[in-house]
């Protein structure tokens, strides 16, 4: 039971990496299906649809970042083993990134699919099409910010 704080902290890191990673995997996956469909009809669209496909991939990176920071502070990759309360605080700090990463990754993927469809029909609308999925990114960034501030705020 001495390491309970570390267990909580590690659980938080796992949640951040796991859920945000799943969100991105689903998002990039469905956007990839649309991108493949578009490229099979119009190979010239490859560059544009690739950018749109990659947009939902950032949540996974944010989750990884939060997991790394957490691991480096709970005695696994550095820092000191936290107390039980500190461990719970690390767990709570990781939740925004984990859950918002999951939801925003999937929905950004759907927005990317719609944007790829738009670019496929109207190639000149790429700039506008990119804005729609990019809007979803705002919420992933907000969650990242809260998770980072929370982790660094734990004494």
């Amino acid at each position: 039971m001495d390491n309970l704080g570390m267990v909580f902290g590690l659980t938080g890191a796992a949640i951040a990496a796991l859920f945000a990673g799943i969100g991105s995997a689903v998002g990039v996956g469905i956007a990839g299906q649309a991108a493949a469909g578009a490229t099979s009809e119009k190979p010239d669209l490859f560059g544009k649809v690739l950018v749109l496909q990659l947009l939902p991939g950032t949540q996974g990176i944010y989750g990884l970042l939060i997991a790394f920071i957490t691991l480096s502070r709970i005695g696994i990759m550095g820092g000191q083993a936290p107390t039980t309360v500190q461990g719970l605080l690390y767990l709570a700090a990781c939740l925004p990134m984990g859950f918002v990463g999951l939801g925003s990754g999937i929905h950004q993927g759907k927005a990317s699919v719609a944007a790829i469809n738009l670019v496929s029909k109207k190639e000149d609308q790429f700039g506008k099409a990119m804005i729609f999925p990019a809007m979803v990114e705002t919420y992933a960034i907000l969650a990242l910010l809260i998770s980072i501030l929370s982790i660094f705020g734990i004494k």
Binding site: I30, Q33, A34, G37, A38, V113, I116, N117
Partner: peptide, 17 residues
């Protein structure tokens, strides 16, 4: 809903024709 994403994208392109 996600099952026909590639098919639908292809068809949307074909709609231009």
């Amino acid at each position: 809903d996600n099952k026909y994403i590639d098919a639908v994208t292809r068809i949307h392109i074909k709609e231009n024709d």
